[in-house]
């Protein structure tokens, strides 16, 4: 089997003495979409945040595209981490800028000098690459529109284009469709699956709806109280497993 694009082992994390992640091991390979399922507080978002560098794990090893993150620091760590791109529930684009400028910003790690200061100085090469990324998500015709004027689903697709412009091997999506209507959610999930299968990306998506995972993902990882309780192709997901994964939430509510 080929080397995993994202490999996590013995990941542990606690906030104020409360264990959020406990000995989490998993791999995501190129060409597959892995859905992370679990109740609120089960640690699925924290897992992605640890990989993206938005949370600091207490212990564990993270390997991105064959490169070990431990031991790196500063600029080197930032560059190694940029192998993984992140898509957020709240999208996090700049609404006043055009879709194209927002997508170009995904490639900032490759630019230096004046282009660091204003989109006016982005190179033609970067713009054309960003256009191709927008085209990949089906929004080439909206390139010069301000992001704030696009619909939620279109905005999330621009955010995915920004991740593509980052030339990442791994795409991390933290509840990418929780803020979208069912139709737009379906569209975005289909796009993520397509990117995994056709562009050979390793996609890891935290999802709140198991049905979306069953329809679009190849494999599901279920977290329960910060540990992996399920890790198998989505075909093996059944009522009993879902009940186990989501029962803590029912008990609390």
């Amino acid at each position: 089997m080929q080397q995993a694009a994202l490999s996590v082992s013995s990941l542990a994390k606690s906030y104020n003495g409360r264990t959020v992640l406990d000995d989490v091991d998993f791999q995501v390979h190129r060409g597959e979409l892995v859905a992370f399922l679990g109740a609120n507080g089960s640690g699925k978002s924290t897992t992605l945040k640890c990989v993206a560098g938005l949370a600091e794990p207490d212990a564990g090893r993270i390997e991105l595209d064959g490169q070990q993150l431990a031991g790196l620091s500063g600029r080197q760590l930032a560059l190694a981490r940029s192998t993984a791109a992140m898509v957020f529930q709240k999208i996090h684009l700049v609404p006043r800028r055009t879709a194209l400028d927002n997508v170009c910003a995904g490639g900032l790690a490759r630019v230096s000098g004046l282009a660091s200061v204003s989109p006016m100085f982005f190179s033609r090469q970067l713009r054309e690459e960003a256009m191709a990324c927008l085209d990949r998500v089906g929004l080439a015709d909206r390139a010069l529109e301000k992001v704030g004027r696009l619909s939620g689903g279109q905005q999330q697709r621009v955010a995915i284009a920004r991740a593509l412009c980052q030339r990442a091997a791994v795409l991390l999506a933290d509840e990418p469709v929780s803020a979208l209507d069912p139709n737009a959610a379906e569209h975005v999930m289909a796009l993520l699956a397509e990117l995994a299968h056709e562009e050979n990306l390793a996609v890891a998506a935290v999802l709140h709806q198991p049905e979306l995972a069953i329809r679009h993902a190849d494999r599901a990882i279920g977290l329960l109280h910060g540990s992996i309780a399920f890790n198998a192709p989505v075909a093996e997901l059944n009522e009993k497993i879902l009940h186990t994964l989501y029962s803590p939430e029912r008990n609390a509510a």
Binding site: A78, F88, A105, G106, A109
Partner: peptide
Amino acid sequence: ALSTAGAS
């Protein structure tokens, strides 16, 4: 978001 993209 830009910090995760490796921007300075």
